[in-house]
């Protein structure tokens, strides 16, 4: 049964199109990832799902209801953790949990919740004194305190150190195992690859691909990448003209060639004919990063200006 159905969602702010045309369905009990670079329209999409924004076109259904018309009912049953949502600096953890649990018809036992999230010993601590990881755990706890059927978690691990990120991932899996359907918004490939049952790859307001992490990688698998440092300067055109090659890029003094078929052989033949030696030659395996490039035709981190 689809818990969330988004069909041809379109949302613009003035002249800026935030979401062009997005459709997907989230099944009960899965971790559904919405993955894409910054500015791809991920947050706007989940804000429409959470009922915070009205779509300009298209339909959104959550638990069989319209987030705009049945906002009151859905706010009881959908837990949301939005990015950059803090709490008052001097509010204590227990006070926050007690307050937010009073908002719901059937609140979870928040003491148990804090224990399972590993922040039970912080009950008397003010929000400003919590570490980044503890703040995120509290945020998750607040999203879950109403015993929701669906939890929407936006950019959960941004700004966390690697250990805290891994701990948070374990938590999300625990939450899913307790029967809550999770929509996870992220711009981290490794996070999506590790956690999600299925991923919608969003780029420029559209779904570029929707599959399991393995499925997405497999789609891009016919693409390979060869990386080397030429012994003398090399004209990119020599390689770009090859039928096997789809793209030639430079990474410092290294040349990175992406392509299909017998790519390695094609490259080494051309180099040999031109008496160029390929030093530090490596053939790279496909990752979700490559899948993104293959499926959208551009680098994942383009929009972050890297």
């Amino acid at each position: 049964m689809a818990v969330i159905e988004v069909t041809n969602l379109h949302k613009r702010y003035g002249e800026t199109v935030a979401v062009d045309d997005v459709s997907f369905a989230v099944e009960e009990g899965e971790i559904f990832g919405i993955l894409g670079p910054n500015g791809a329209g991920k947050t706007t999409t989940v804000e429409c799902v959470a009922g915070l924004r009205a779509p300009d076109r298209g339909t959104v259904t959550v638990l069989g209801r319209d987030p705009q018309r049945d906002a009151a009912e859905l706010r009881q049953r959908v837990g949301v953790q939005l990015q950059e949502s803090r709490l008052p600096d001097k509010l204590k953890v227990a006070e926050a949990m007690d307050l937010y649990s009073s908002f719901y018809r059937r609140p979870a036992d928040w003491n148990t919740l804090l224990e399972s999230l590993g922040v039970a010993d912080k009950r008397g601590t003010q929000f400003r004194k919590l570490s980044g990881g503890q703040k995120q755990r509290l945020s998750i706890a607040l999203a879950l305190v109403g015993s929701p059927a669906v939890a929407v978690l936006d950019e959960l691990t941004t700004g966390l150190d690697p250990q805290a990120r891994r701990d948070t991932w374990d938590l999300i899996e625990q939450v899913r195992d307790s029967g809550i359907t999770i929509v996870l918004v992220t711009h981290f490939m490794d996070e999506a690859e590790r956690l999600c049952d299925r991923i919608a790859l969003v780029d420029s307001g559209r779904v570029a691909a929707l599959d399991t992490p393995a499925g997405l990688v497999a789609r891009a698998a016919e693409e390979q990448r060869v990386r080397f440092r030429p012994s003398v300067s090399l004209d990119d055109g020599l390689l770009a003209d090859l039928p096997e090659v789809t793209r030639v890029e430079r990474a410092g003094r290294q040349v990175v060639v992406t392509g299909t078929g017998n790519l390695l052989h094609a490259i080494t033949s051309v180099l040999a004919r031109n008496h160029i030696i390929a030093e530090e030659l490596r053939v790279e395996q496909t990752s979700l990063d490559d899948a993104f490039v293959a499926l959208t035709g551009r680098r994942f981190d383009d929009e972050e200006g890297k």
Binding site: R75, L82, Y100
Partner: peptide, 8 residues
């Protein structure tokens, strides 16, 4: 903003 996602 956080509160606007709750029933209150």
């Amino acid at each position: 903003r956080r509160m606007s996602t709750t029933p209150v």
